[in-house]
Nucleic acid binder design. Structure first.
Lengths: 228, 228
DNA sequence: AACTTAAAACTTGTATGGTAGTATGGTTGT
DNA sequence: ACAACCATACTACCATACAAGTTTTAAGTT
């Protein structure tokens, strides 16, 4: 498969540019788990020097999207279901804590944004624009965090979420139900509006547990992407 | 005040070495918030090249212990109480989620480790060895996470916790009560042993909220370390 | 054919050189 | 006295060179 190489947007550093390109291609499985990449190879591919490539590698290795073996090589990580589970655990813990805040206080403006987001989500689904749908999904949750003044918390989730994202992509390729996802988003909005903390917590739990069920299914379907 | 420069321990990379030295000196207030440091200055001080220094800077900036202004300079961050509060929020959410697991299943061996840790804690307090006490404190919580198979979760806390750590150091310099801390640790052990989830959650809440009370007190005492 | 071994071709880690952008301090013009 | 300007000395960023270690390759030996 071919690499997707967007042009660097203005204002970003070379280092960030390399990071973005690599992340996109890893999460999108354009480079496959187990593949070996090298600083030289990427620096040539993107026409930049090794330094920013190296910095991007380090950053990605912290997200466990790749692992660096000193003096040996750098490899794309396999999806580790134990890690995915822990990422889910972290995300569930933090999302629940935030939904508890959101069901106590939430501005009308932000609620409106969430609703607009959902209509956009439906649109993308009809057009079968899955990756754009996933972006909106992320945006949805991000909005809740920001409204609760927990932007840093969201960035932590982002960091842990990389592994998780790859599974979601597979899940969409495998064509598993996304209509349920939208229904859950709607339920979250209702919970916030009615200040129904109980319902909010329950929905978030289901929302994230859904993927838990799919995990084994996906591992059977794409064993070459998984650890062991 | 003088910089504390330990020798590099064998096996660690130069980059990690620089990171450790810088972190220790920032958290310990040997370099003060607002101070300017540069790649050149540090590379000369530690007798290494600029590359590993730069990598350490990037890592520390992700923990918000310093901030990099491109082409302008790198500065030690002031303590931002909003950020500290969010770090506390994250930690509380994750610690509660883990204590819930711990009060359901926990090995006898690990419980023993926790008890041994507490006796060691008392020791350090008597000797007024505060920084060593803080290390044991961290170890205590880490043990719980690891026993619950949530090592990654702990590492997330570590990352977010740097800001928080600086406050704890100030708190100890200002001589605020640590006996209460030990009592709370003991209460956590009891909760785990008796599988008393309710008590566990409550204690964790108090444990972390304690610092919340001290924050304003500390800001008044050391205004030069805080933002605004 | 199977095993040794040495050299070449990789890898990442570290050092150093060069560049663009920013702050600063002094000088000049008014 | 004060503002405009310019030279200088910084900064972090990126490119390149070198070092240290690993893997691959292939020739040489038994």
């Amino acid at each position: 498969m071919e690499w997707i190489i967007d042009q660097p947007s203005n204002g970003t550093s070379v280092s960030d540019y390399v990071y973005e390109v690599l992340k996109k291609n890893i999460v999108g499985f354009n480079v496959k788990p187990g593949d070996r990449i090298s600083e030289n190879e990427i620096s040539e591919l993107l026409q930049v020097s090794r330094t920013p490539v190296r910095e991007a590698f380090i950053k990605l290795s912290k997200e466990d999207l790749l692992y660096i073996l000193p003096q040996r090589g750098t490899y794309i990580s396999y999806i580790d279901l134990d890690e995915v589970e822990e990422a889910r655990f972290i995300r569930e813990s933090l999302e629940k804590a935030v939904i508890e805040l959101a069901t106590k206080e939430f501005s009308e403006d932000a609620l409106f944004m969430l609703e607009q987001n959902i209509t956009a989500q439906k649109n993308k689904i009809e057009k079968k624009a899955y990756s754009e749908f996933l972006e909106l999904d992320e945006e949805f949750h991000k909005t809740i965090f920001q409204e609760c003044n927990k932007g840093k918390t969201w960035s932590i989730i982002q960091q842990v979420n990389s592994q998780y994202k790859r599974i979601r992509i597979l899940s969409f390729i495998a064509n598993i139900n996304w209509l349920q996802t939208i229904a859950q988003h709607q339920a979250i909005i209702e919970a916030i509006r009615n200040k129904d903390t109980e319902k909010g917590l329950k929905t978030i739990g289901e929302h994230l547990k859904k993927l838990n069920i799919e995990k084994m299914e996906l591992k059977n379907k794409y064993p070459e992407y998984f650890k062991q």
